[in-house]
Simulated assay, not measured.
Amino acid sequence: MLNTFVKALLESDYFENAVISKIRGGTQKFISLGDIRKLEICLPPIEVQESFKEFAYHVNKSKFASHSN
C-alpha cells in the first residue's frame, strides 16, 4: 500500500463520513477500536495506486506553480 494513497484516503470525504457514522457519545465523542477495525476501505491493485500517485504528484506540482505566481 502506497503512503500517497493512504494519505489521500484518510483525507477523503468517504473516510470522514465512514468515521462520523461510527462516532458515539454525547458530550465526549469517541470511536471504538472495534469500529475502527470494521471500517471498510477500498484497496486497489498496486498499479492503480501507482497511477494515482503520479496523478497526485502532477496535481500538487500544478497547485504549487499556480500559488507561486
Rank of each mutant, 00 (worst) to 15 (best):
T4M: 06
T4L: 09
T4K: 08
F5G: 00
F5M: 07
F5V: 02
V6R: 07
V6D: 01
V6L: 15
V6I: 14
V6A: 12
K7P: 06
K7R: 14
K7I: 00
A8P: 02
A8S: 14
A8D: 12
A8K: 07
L9H: 07
L9G: 02
L10S: 10
E11F: 01
E11Q: 08
E11R: 07
S12C: 03
S12M: 09
S12V: 02
S12Q: 11
S12P: 08
S12D: 12
D13S: 15
D13T: 13
D13Q: 11
D13Y: 06
Y14L: 13
F15C: 03
F15T: 10
E16A: 15
E16I: 14
E16D: 13
N17S: 01
N17L: 02
A18R: 06
V19A: 12
V19H: 04
V19T: 11
V19Q: 09
V19C: 13
I20K: 14
I20F: 13
I20Y: 14
S21H: 14
K22A: 10
K22E: 04
K22Q: 14
K22F: 04
I23G: 12
I23S: 14
I23W: 05
I23E: 14
I23Y: 03
I23H: 13
R24D: 15
R24E: 15
R24A: 15
R24L: 15
R24C: 15
G25Q: 13
G25M: 14
G25T: 12
G25L: 11
G25A: 12
G26L: 08
T27E: 15
T27A: 09
T27H: 04
Q28M: 05
Q28V: 00
Q28E: 00
Q28T: 02
Q28R: 12
K29G: 08
K29N: 06
F30E: 02
F30R: 11
F30S: 05
I31Y: 11
I31R: 10
S32G: 09
S32R: 02
L33D: 01
L33M: 05
G34A: 02
G34D: 03
D35K: 06
D35H: 06
I36C: 04
I36F: 05
I36Y: 01
R37Q: 15
R37E: 14
R37H: 09
R37Y: 03
R37P: 00
K38Y: 04
K38V: 05
K38M: 13
L39I: 01
L39E: 00
E40Q: 08
I41R: 10
I41W: 04
I41E: 01
C42M: 10
C42A: 07
C42Y: 13
C42P: 06
C42V: 09
L43N: 02
L43T: 13
L43S: 03
P44V: 08
P44S: 02
P45D: 14
P45G: 10
I46T: 05
I46G: 05
I46R: 11
I46P: 02
E47T: 08
E47R: 10
E47M: 05
E47I: 00
V48H: 10
V48N: 07
V48K: 13
Q49P: 05
Q49N: 05
Q49F: 10
Q49V: 04
E50M: 07
E50H: 13
E50R: 09
S51Y: 07
F52P: 03
F52N: 04
F52H: 05
F52Y: 03
F52E: 01
K53E: 04
K53Q: 07
K53T: 08
K53D: 09
E54D: 14
E54G: 11
E54M: 05
E54S: 11
